[in-house]
Design a protein around this nucleic acid. Structure first.
Lengths: 211, 211
DNA sequence: TAGATTGTTAATCGATTAACAATC
DNA sequence: TAGATTGTTAATCGATTAACAATC
């Protein structure tokens, strides 16, 4: 079964929808209207309907969407049957925080390794994740079939580690360093820069203060 | 002097440009071509030129842009003369990580307080930032004129803390919890969800593996 | 000068919103 | 039925890319 090509923004929203649908389901209601799902995220009902249209799902008799089936359909889009293995590279505060976010959240995304240079961390199991020395990057990534790396190393190490990740066959990198990364085009990279985010917020706060 | 209204994506890039321009300047070169600046971030030269056009800056004699002047112009857009005070709300791993990112980086964005419930943290100074009990949220935010909050509390606390931040007069929130926030429209909010980001990467990795 | 670079407008691409017929 | 809701197309909005005259 081929995964449909969907707009990136739709993918993000599907991830968000799924989480609130799981919560909603726990509340005991089996159906949800587009305007209800929209309200949970402050999106418009049209947006929600369009996203759901794009994944080819249909509601039953305008009684709202069947929550369980919708969750299953979203899982069909986002999840890989066998799951995807993830490594956190650089196991400092941020690496810990992100690992912690995932504790028992998504069975299909498994953070199964972390890497660090600190001898005090290497060899230990933290939050259920084994910490390996960075020297073993290549070996462990291949062995454990890790396809996504969360990059949280110090900026001066970012480029070298990225080259090694790519060489080891990594398929996706979430870049939390402030360094722009150079990778082959078949590797997915997205960068999340705390300083840029904060400067952006500051700009809009400044702007709104002037008007 | 009024701050020009610029597209959000341009603001993000200006923040990125500034950082690489500062580095570039340290390398001793006083001028930079649009294609050089573009290459540093894997943008196109047209994109860079358009952004620079939007901030009303002009190069001198097609010798490239005067790096110092360009930095100054970007600062005029992004920075507030008196600086902006920032608080980290929830001083766990993520709060520490973000605070650490800022150590001595931007003189105009000052993380001057953190809040937590843990008595082991309250009252201590970590990374140069005093940790206050959450009960003092309102008082400290008003007193210290804090206008931006970095929200890194556990999800179950997110809504209540947000309401209190808004009531205390906060102007911008960077939401690192997975909870969608409800705020008045004059408050800037942007949400950064680690799970969504990772699921998005997983989707595109899955997709590229099928083709 | 010739070649490289810039500033800017027009064209394109992508995402959101509006509109509305069809359905229950 | 009447009212609410859906699925989908068309219109709009926003951002990027292409194109190119002007400049040095």
């Amino acid at each position: 079964m081929k995964t449909p090509v969907l707009p990136p923004r739709t993918i993000e929203r599907l991830s968000e929808y799924r989480r609130s649908l799981l919560e909603y389901l726990a509340g005991g209601k089996p159906y949800i209207f587009s305007h209800e799902l929209a309200a949970l995220h402050h999106y418009t009902p049209e947006q929600v309907r369009r996203d759901i249209m794009l994944i080819g799902y249909s509601s039953f008799q305008r009684k709202g969407y069947d929550v369980k089936k919708l969750i299953r359909r979203i899982a069909g889009i986002l999840d890989t049957p066998r799951g995807i293995n993830v490594a956190v590279v650089g196991f400092g505060n941020l690496g810990h925080a992100i690992t912690n976010y995932f504790r028992g959240k998504r069975s299909k995304l498994n953070i199964i390794a972390s890497f660090d240079n600190d001898p005090g961390k290497v060899g230990k199991v933290t939050l259920g994740v084994v910490c390996y020395p960075v020297q073993q990057l290549h070996e462990i990534i291949r062995e454990k079939r890790i396809s996504i790396a969360v990059l949280t190393v110090p900026p001066e190490a970012a480029r070298e580690i990225t080259a090694r990740l790519v060489y080891a066959g990594i398929r996706g990198i979430l870049n939390y360093t402030s360094v722009p990364l150079q990778v082959p085009e078949n590797v997915f990279v997205e960068s999340y820069d705390f300083i840029t985010f904060l400067e952006k917020a500051a700009y809009f706060v400044k702007l709104s203060g002037e008007r």
